[in-house]
Design a protein around this nucleic acid. Structure first.
Lengths: 345, 345
DNA sequence: TTTTTCTTGATGTTCGAACCTCAGATCGGA
DNA sequence: TCCGATCTGAGGTTCGAACATCAAGAAAAA
């Protein structure tokens, strides 16, 4: 049996170090007016006793409230709607920690709008989480925010070259590779063509998934030929039209990978062509629709990134950076979930 | 833009309801001596204003410390070692919430020992998380604990018929089904036999996985014949011997599913038989070993349940039940993770 | 030696809620 | 109408840390 922790207050530390509470306090909060030797003594005792400030008391005493802003894309995208909903839940949870979230939705396909929205946030928040577009204007807006002393994290879609403090989201190249491996395996040694549908290659996450997917298929499944990517703009109707055309014109079609939204369109096309369950179909993001497609055998796997995790993680990261509390990195890693019919949550 | 929360104190509620702080306090903490009509008025205002007690202040004021005990199996099982490590991390996190964890390890294959260990905990803790054996003695020990007013949650392996307050873990039938579907798909239309290795059918989770697996394979992949299950007792050497024997004696072996531990043994057998990558191999629990096997192509998929999630979830559940704080169910659902080479964390 | 500057201790207030006591107020029943 | 029982208000204390102020003592500079 191992007692893993204890409860030690600043009082204990002060007594043990032979200084007053005030001095111990000055050391711990980096206030001036303590001889270096004394400060060291205090720090020693802190380490030896394993003193950990009572977070509840500290927050209560500070009485600070943090203001965060989450900037998400507007539009009908189901995943983004889920994310917005989860942000609302997160806000409720955060309110117990003296932090408030405002939620802003802007047009994701307009870098100028996004950039100017971001710039309008300067000084009004302590931290910003943004589903970013990798565009020079957006990058410079992010840098402006950090220059103004705000903590910025990118959410779902990264801008690696910016000064964002953290990226909360998955490795989309790995997500694409995962799709590639699953399609390669599910195709079961068949030879033929694989249809590839993206929302728009202008979105960094779509481009990365496409890259990872093609990499795996062309490298390891030579029997499968990846057709040139078609753009759906994430619209159901357009996606359906593309899928229908493929089913008509590609006789040896063995699989479909949909990088973006619009899975309902593909399911519709497969079903009406009588090919549901025949053509391997993998897409992204678990929704009511894709869950149903999995259960019906229309989709074979869904690659997912949990909106709730990402929202909470972004909030924790913002909070930790603003209040100086520690972060458990391992807990903040967002995973690439694979769902098949049998492990649906 | 939507401001999702606010900060309202009990003071505000009392003022708005036209009562004193003391009365509002009595209502919220269920203390006697308030007329029902007045209490209703207060509750109305609480709802209307969306008052949420400041958790930090509440905990500070209560000053309670909760003592939890985590009872895990002893022995060399890697997953259980991971779990123990994560419990230690969780303990550190919990110490910021005035809660302490003791960690006890007992022999999992001895229901008597487990049961008497549990009974020895009575009165010494506020809550217990236990990796339970589904055995009448253990069940009655759990019921004794709850009868003594302690909160008990089962971890990883459930005892559904007991009075445990909560089960933190995955649906192991679903996990077995997931393995079945993946093997069925990965086998790619081949015809042949599938080897099935369990630790011991006495463990509920093993039995459930076996059940789910067999259900899917026999129901949906008639070309695959599931061999009678062999028992490995979770030992590498034994597992290896079984795998070697299967590889020798079953000429049409197309896949192996290992329900318990001992994946290294199977990997060894496959490699030395020159069958690595030929025979589909799926097992449980991501470890350094299984990760390596995935990357080398010896294993095709690993079904995983995150030890860190489970440990933290158990702690949150215990804390919530003891302190009466709310739980977000959705966050406490443990997922069945599927890992292939490309989505390793 | 005398100032000035630097350290330190002592002491207090604040945060929001939990919990306690005591004195009135109100109410029902006899 | 009066009595006890039941409400309610007012006030205080506590938790642990953050932060402020003031004065005493020590060390360094003049």
């Amino acid at each position: 049996m191992s007692r893993v922790s204890s409860r030690i207050t600043l009082q204990d530390v002060a007594r043990e170090a032979g200084v007053s509470l005030a001095t111990a306090d000055r050391v711990l909060n980096g206030r001036a007016g303590v001889r270096e030797a004394t400060a060291d003594r205090v720090r020693d005792v802190v380490a030896r006793l394993g003193y950990r400030p009572n977070a509840a008391a500290a927050r209560l005493a500070r009485g600070e409230t943090y203001r965060f802003c989450f900037v998400l894309p507007s539009g009908p995208n189901v995943f983004m709607r889920q994310l917005a909903e989860q942000v609302t839940n997160t806000a409720e949870w955060l309110s117990a920690h003296n932090a408030y979230i405002d939620l802003v939705r802007v047009d994701v396909f307009a870098p100028e709008t996004l950039a100017s929205t971001l710039e309008g946030l300067i000084g009004r928040y302590d931290g910003v989480a943004v589903v970013a577009l990798d565009h020079p204007r957006v990058r410079s807006a992010i840098d402006d925010l950090t220059a103004a002393g705000m903590v910025v994290v990118t959410l779902v879609s990264d801008v690696p070259s910016s000064h964002r403090r953290h990226y909360v989201g998955v490795d989309n190249i790995a997500a694409g590779r995962t799709a590639g491996t699953l399609i390669g395996r599910f195709a079961g040694g068949r030879t033929g063509s694989v249809g590839l549908i993206v929302g728009t290659p202008a979105l960094r996450d779509h481009a990365e998934r496409q890259f990872g997917f093609t990499q795996v298929l062309s490298g390891e499944y030579p029997a499968l030929r990846v057709l040139p990517a078609r753009e759906s703009l994430d619209e159901d109707a357009r996606t359906q039209a593309i899928a229908e055309q493929m089913l008509r014109e590609v006789p040896d079609l063995v699989a479909l990978y949909n990088v973006g939204a619009g899975n309902s369109g593909i399911a519709g096309a497969l079903t009406s062509a009588g090919q549901a369950g025949e053509v391997v179909f993998i897409g992204h993001d678990l929704t009511d629709d894709t869950r149903r497609f999995l259960l019906r055998g229309v989709m074979d796997a869904v690659i997912h990134q949990d909106a709730g995790h990402q929202s909470r993680s972004a909030a924790r990261v913002l909070l930790a950076h603003c209040s100086g509390e520690p972060l458990f990195d391992e807990q903040e890693r967002i995973r690439i979930d694979i769902f098949v019919r049998d492990n649906l949550p």
